[in-house]
Structures are given as structure tokens and as C-alpha cells.
């Protein structure tokens, strides 16, 4: 992303001595407006996503009761289920019911298990969210270490080798990597369980151990992508005039990297992290199934096989909401890193 650097938008201060007081005030207002705008975007996007899901899952297929029961269902069975699910009411009413229920943690009853959907989802969330957090932490750490090292050794064998590896890392499907990790670390070396999840009550260490291989499988791909971005962002920033200024001040190569290059280079890295998080979360759906970990991914796949649409719909919304929230956080971090954005966004 390139940001136009413009000096004339604030040039009113130049002749106006009171302009400085005005500008501090303005900065605070700017920040609040920036935050409010992003929050509004978050909410609108969430509502939009929920509508897309509702339309796709409940209106497009025609008769949801028929979908749930399958084509062999008798008319009476369909009619019964239709009333039971409250599907005889109009779509806007049903949408409102869904959303207002969600706000108080009410997701309806699973058709397949006859338990509240929230009960199923809650347990799964406690696995998928930590898994996603561990994976993204691994990815970013890997990316920064590899990216910075490669950039520091630009065009040297280390750089070329690491970038070759990262190209490979991008190409390996995460579920295949998961299978390879199981074969090597679980079956061959027996260091890790081949799958399953003991539950957090069994001890943090044990649970963490169960999530480690899945997290590595997920983090490798995203980490490889981010490492490439980090490297090119750092190299790009190195060519900026202000880096030369920093060197002219007497800062060493290393001090320049930490104090002047890194923060600017983080801007594109952050953008791509936001984009990649969606991919990472989609990856958890697959990888959870490879490791038989009872997270949201396993839940949703079972729900599909059981034609339990109400579970599918709520889980998909939850996953989408996570993506949207992470992108909101990314936007907020931008504002922290790059002071130009706030002013520009008004």
C-alpha cells in the first residue's frame, strides 16, 4: 500500500500561531472519528455477513425443513418440522429472531443432537480460538525472524535459500503437512499424540501439546507468505530517503533497522496478516479434521453430514465474525503504527 504524502492539507498552521493548539485538539478528534468509523464498518460488515449467511442458508434452498429431512421425508414430517423450527414465519422475523438470540448467546436447538447449539459451539470455541491464536503467533514470529534475516542477507546464499524454502512452504497444503507431521512426530518418533484433544481440565501442558502439531501445520504456510512480505517490505523501506537520513545522523545499520525500518515495514506485513487470517481460520477447519480435534471445524463438518443447518449457520457466522474482528484490530493497529492514516481517513 502506498500512501500519498501531502503537506498542503495542514499548511494552514504555517501562518496561524493558534493553529498548534488547534492541531492537538484536531488530533484527538481525528482519532475518535477514525475509531468510530472503523467500529461502524465492523458492525455493518458483521450485519452484512450475517445477512449473506441467512440468505444462503435459509432462503435460497427453498424449504429448510426439506433440506434437513432429505428428499424421502413425508409431507407430514416436513410440516411438523416447519412449525417446530418456526419456519412458517416470515424471513425478516426469523432473521431478527436469530440475531437477537445471538446477542444473548442463544443460538437455537441442534436438530441432530437435540441440545442448545451454544453448548456445542462453546466447547469448540475453547479449542479453535486458542489454536488460531497459537498459529498466528507462530506465523508472525516465523515471518519476522526469517524475513528480517533474509533481508539483512539480501542476495546472499542465506536469503536465496530461505526464499526458496518459503516458496515451497507456500505451496504445501496444510492438511498434507499435518499428515506428514503426524507420520513423523506422532507415529515415527512418538513425541506427540497422533490426534484428539484431552480437554483443558486435563492440564494446560497436555492440551497445548495436542495443539502444537496442528498449529505448526497451520503456521508454516501463513508464516512463509508473511516472511516473503516482511523481506520485501524491509528491502523496500531500506531504499527510502529517511533511512539514508537516519544513517547520516550516525545510526548504525542495526539501529537503523530497529528504529526506522521495522516500524514502516510492519505496515504491509500487517495488511497481509489481516488477509491471511481468513485463510488460517479456514485452514483450522481442515486441520482440525486431520487431527480429530473437536473444534469448530470438526463441529461444522459433522453438522453438514447430519444436515444440521442451524449449527452450520451459526458456526459459519462465528468464523466470519472472527475474520472481521481481526481485520478491525488490524485497522486499529495501523492507526498506532502510521500517523498519516488517521488524518487521511477523514
Amino acid at each position: 500500500m502506498t500512501l500519498p504524502v501531502s503537506g498542503d492539507n495542514v499548511s494552514l498552521h504555517e501562518t496561524n500561531p493558534t493553529g498548534v493548539l488547534f492541531s492537538t485538539c484536531l488530533a484527538k478528534i481525528t482519532m475518535s472519528i477514525f475509531f468510530a468509523k472503523r467500529l461502524l464498518t465492523l458492525i455493518v460488515t458483521l450485519i452484512g455477513a450475517s445477512m449473506v449467511i441467512f440468505v444462503v442458508m435459509e432462503i435460497l434452498p427453498g424449504d429448510p425443513a426439506l433440506v434437513i429431512l432429505g428428499i424421502n421425508a413425508t409431507d407430514e414430517m416436513v410440516a411438523l418440522l416447519t412449525t417446530e423450527l418456526g419456519l412458517d414465519r416470515s424471513a425478516p422475523v426469523r432473521y431478527w429472531d436469530w440475531i437477537s438470540g445471538l446477542l444473548v448467546g442463544e443460538m437455537g436447538m441442534s436438530y441432530a443432537y437435540k441440545v442448545p447449539v451454544w453448548e456445542l459451539v462453546e466447547g469448540a470455541l475453547w479449542i479453535t480460538v486458542p489454536l488460531a491464536i497459537i498459529s498466528i503467533t507462530f506465523s508472525i514470529t516465523l515471518a519476522l525472524v526469517v524475513g528480517l534475516y533474509a533481508a539483512a542477507n539480501h542476495n546472499k546464499p542465506a536469503d536465496i535459500g530461505l526464499m526458496g524454502f518459503s516458496q515451497l512452504g507456500i505451496s504445501i497444503p496444510n492438511f498434507w503437512l499435518a499428515v506428514l507431521l503426524i507420520m513423523f512426530f506422532a507415529i515415527e518418533l512418538r513425541w506427540f499424540p497422533a490426534g484428539g484433544f484431552p480437554g483443558w481440565d486435563e492440564g494446560i501442558f497436555k492440551s497445548f501439546k495436542a495443539l502444537l502439531l496442528p498449529a505448526i501445520a497451520l503456521a508454516t504456510v501463513v508464516g512463509a507468505i508473511l516472511a516473503r512480505i516482511t523481506r520485501s517490505a524491509v528491502l523496500e523501506v531500506y531504499r527510502e530517503d529517511y533511512v539514508r537520513t537516519a544513517r547520516a545522523k550516525g545510526l548504525s545499520q542495526r539501529a537503523t533497522l530497529w528504529l526506522h525500518v521495522l516500524r514502516n515495514a510492519l505496515i504491509p506485513v500487517l495488511t497481509v496478516t489481516g488477509i491471511q487470517f481468513a485463510g488460517l481460520l479456514a485452514g483450522t477447519v481442515v486441520v482440525e479434521n486431520v487431527f480429530h480435534i473437536p473444534g469448530l471445524g470438526s463441529l461444522v463438518l459433522k453438522a453438514i453430514n447430519n444436515r444440521d443447518t442451524i449449527v452450520v449457520e451459526n458456526v459459519v457466522l462465528l468464523l466470519a465474525a472472527m475474520v472481521i474482528t481481526v481485520n478491525f484490530i488490524v485497522d486499529m493497529l495501523y492507526a498506532v503504527i502510521d500517523p498519516r492514516l488517521k488524518a487521511q481517513d477523514i
Binding site: 504524502v5 530517503d241 529517511y242 539514508r244 537520513t245 537516519a246 516500524r263 514502516n264 500517523p339
Partner: peptide
Amino acid sequence: PMTSLNPVH
């Protein structure tokens, strides 16, 4: 001068 100062500091 437009690009010689670090924009984030």
C-alpha cells in the same frame, strides 16, 4: 524534504 523524514516518528 518530503521523503527525508521518517513518517512514523
